[in-house]
């Protein structure tokens, strides 16, 4: 195995890490804010990819596909939050179980609408030009995915750390009772974050489509990855999701290359180490 091989695999790992960040940053924010582990998140990712595929097949461009998927999934998430989760306010377990049920429903509807054949979303030409650097050739699309994830991470970081809205989110993640007490509109915040998280997952699905393809079962493969990222990084932390996503991207990519039969087992090793020594995750707040 040459240096080129390792570099290429590293780029694959970075690209997967970027996708995982898009998927799990929303998951982590929703969890941090509402204490709801949104088990539909993998299904949002998959549905996003399918929506993007249909938009592309209808003759629109890649950017339109990403935006359309983001909007559709955000609306879907908004409806779920408004009409199902809000009815179950303060019943965290019931909320989580509802998202699990919805995950199956969404997955089966996808199977119904888009059939069971794996389909690859075509990467746009203007993004797939090979990039030559250090005497090697890199697939341009993967570089693009990494760039997007970094930009999104920066934007999210600015949103959470530098805006009034973000300050309210942070306060609510720390102590929701206190936040309500000082007049933060928690309900509106939930809705907004839920839609944002859903949109990110949906857009991530389209972005991942040219790399991962889209097929029934993609949701069930992505969800555990998101869980691992969040457990690694710590709940409700954008920085944690970022670091966790890239660690997971690397571990999973190299696991699949070197020991394909056990890539899933290898995937969980970092999680186990973190749970053993720092159960609140790398960037999570440890309980007092």
């Amino acid at each position: 195995m040459s240096i080129g091989f390792w570099l290429l695999q590293s780029l694959n790992a970075l690209a997967l890490g970027g996708l995982l960040f898009l998927l799990s940053s929303g998951f982590s924010l929703i969890f941090g804010l509402m204490r709801v582990a949104n088990l539909s998140h993998g299904a949002y990712f998959m549905l996003g990819a399918y929506v993007g595929l249909s938009v592309l097949q209808a003759g629109f461009g890649f950017i339109e596909a990403i935006l359309a998927a983001g909007i559709v999934i955000a609306i879907l998430g908004g409806l779920i939050e408004r009409f199902l989760l809000r009815r179950l306010a303060n019943r965290t377990l019931a909320q989580v179980l509802v998202t699990l049920g919805l995950a199956f429903a969404i997955a089966d509807i996808c199977l119904m609408l888009w059939s069971g054949d794996p389909m690859q979303l075509p990467a746009p030409k203007w993004l797939s030009q090979p990039i030559r650097a250090f005497g090697f050739v890199f697939p341009g699309y993967r570089v693009f995915v990494v760039e997007v994830s970094i930009v999104v991470a920066l934007l999210l970081w600015l949103l959470i750390e530098r805006t009034k809205l973000g300050a309210m989110v942070r306060a609510s993640v720390d102590d929701i009772q206190m936040a309500r007490g000082v007049g933060i509109p928690a309900q509106k915040l939930f809705s907004f974050i839920f839609c944002l998280g859903a949109a990110l997952a949906g857009m991530g699905g389209v972005l991942g489509g040219p790399i991962l393809s889209v097929y029934p079962g993609l949701d069930g493969e992505m969800l555990p990855l998101a869980l691992v990222v969040v457990i690694l990084g710590g709940i409700g932390s954008i920085g944690g999701a970022f670091v966790g996503a890239y660690i997971t991207g690397f571990v999973y990519t190299f696991g699949q290359t070197l020991l394909p039969a056990f890539s899933y087992v290898i995937l969980f090793l970092p999680m186990i180490v973190i749970l053993a020594f720092r159960p609140s995750g790398l960037f999570g707040k440890s309980a007092p």
Binding site: V96, V265, L275
Partner: peptide
């Protein structure tokens, strides 16, 4: 609680993966 649930889900999927 929910973290336990998430870990069991992830571990369960490991065995599926294997």
């Amino acid at each position: 609680g929910i973290t336990f649930l998430m870990i069991t889900l992830a571990l369960g999927q490991t065995m599926w993966g294997v």
